[in-house]
């Protein structure tokens, strides 16, 4: 057991180090600009005063190391600096939108994950059946579609033609829960379609990968039914790859949400990110990148730990 504990701690440490390095990357990316970063960002037409103001805002007048430690300390305390574009504190800009985005991602994830796992297992069970082939073509098509294409198709049919759902997800802090669900239904559906296809395909592949292994043939030769072979003998060993797939797709939700939010004018931080990128609002972009990266790293860490814990070779050492 101590071996496992050490492995898990190692992973945690590694995750922390990764996070630190990523924060350095995000912070230092500004340094990649040749010449004066403030001038570069504002363009040649900017007045010297505004350039100086930006330089001060980005603390460019201090040595990089001091700036980084200050920045990191401030971040840790929830102070993400102020936006260049409108001078508001970044934390204020982000906080309410972050909630909206998490709501949307959770909405999609709660539907997509169980659905996709069920369909993926079913496809593996009924390998080469009509259902499996149809599912394969459907999922391949779904993952080939750009998210905005799916989103607009949903708008065209469910909103414009049938008038079932609003095409614009107008959500304010005062919107009640049922209304929120209703208004964010279309964006959630668009996200669901995208990740369901991915998870389903990869779940099926993870299971089918095992089918050629001798112990699966042994299970058959012991007289296990196809259902028992998949649910008992294969699934237990496919757990780690499947968890990995799910986590990968949950992490994808965080980025896929950007496009869907733009299409549906959903007030999440994906849209804030896009706006800030086009305005080259560095502090906002840095803050959002850091938050998303942190989520992503944590999710992957979780998948890593699950695969350690579910591996009998590691759990029960010789």
């Amino acid at each position: 057991m101590t071996g496992i504990a050490r492995l898990v701690l190692q992973r945690l440490g590694l995750g922390l180090v990764t996070l630190l390095i990523v924060s350095v990357l995000i912070f230092w990316s500004v340094e990649l600009l040749p010449g004066d970063a403030a001038q570069e960002i504002l363009g040649q037409s900017a007045t010297p005063e505004t350039v100086a103001a930006l330089r001060h805002q980005l603390n460019l007048d201090q040595p990089p190391m001091t700036r980084y430690t200050h920045w990191l300390q401030a971040m840790a305390h929830g102070d993400f600096g102020t936006s260049i574009a409108n001078g508001l504190p970044v934390s204020k800009l982000i906080s309410e939108r972050l909630g909206n985005t998490l709501f949307l991602a959770a909405f999609a994830g709660i539907i997509a994950v169980p659905l996709a796992l069920m369909l993926g297992i079913l496809a593996a069970l009924l390998r080469n059946s009509l259902f499996d082939r149809a599912a394969s073509i459907f999922t391949l098509t779904a993952i080939s579609f750009p998210e905005f294409f799916v989103a607009y198709i949903l708008i065209l049919f469910l909103s414009v033609k049938l008038g079932l759902f609003p095409s614009i997800s107008n959500i304010t802090p005062s919107t009640d829960f049922a209304e929120r669900i209703y208004r964010s239904f279309l964006p959630a559906l668009a996200l669901t379609l995208a990740i369901t296809a991915h998870i389903m395909r990869m779940t099926r592949a993870a299971l089918i990968n095992l089918f050629s292994l001798p112990y699966i043939e042994m299970a058959r030769l012991k007289g296990a039914s196809q259902g028992r072979v998949v649910m008992v003998h294969a699934l237990r060993n496919a757990l780690a790859p499947i968890v990995n797939v799910v986590v990968l797709n949950l992490a994808y939700l965080v980025t896929g949400v950007v496009i869907v939010e733009v299409v549906f004018v959903y007030p999440g931080f994906g849209r804030l990110l896009v706006d800030s990128v086009s305005k080259r609002d560095v502090p906002v972009v840095q803050a959002i990148c850091l938050i998303i990266s942190m989520t992503y790293i944590l999710l992957n860490l979780f998948a890593d730990i699950v695969s350690i814990v579910s591996n009998p070779r590691l759990m029960h050492a010789k």
Binding site: L213, P214, Y215, E217, M218, A219, H233, R236, N237, P312, R313
Partner: peptide, 9 residues
């Protein structure tokens, strides 16, 4: 191969 034919889990 019993090593491969026993389910590792």
């Amino acid at each position: 191969s019993a090593a491969a034919s026993f389910n590792p889990a």
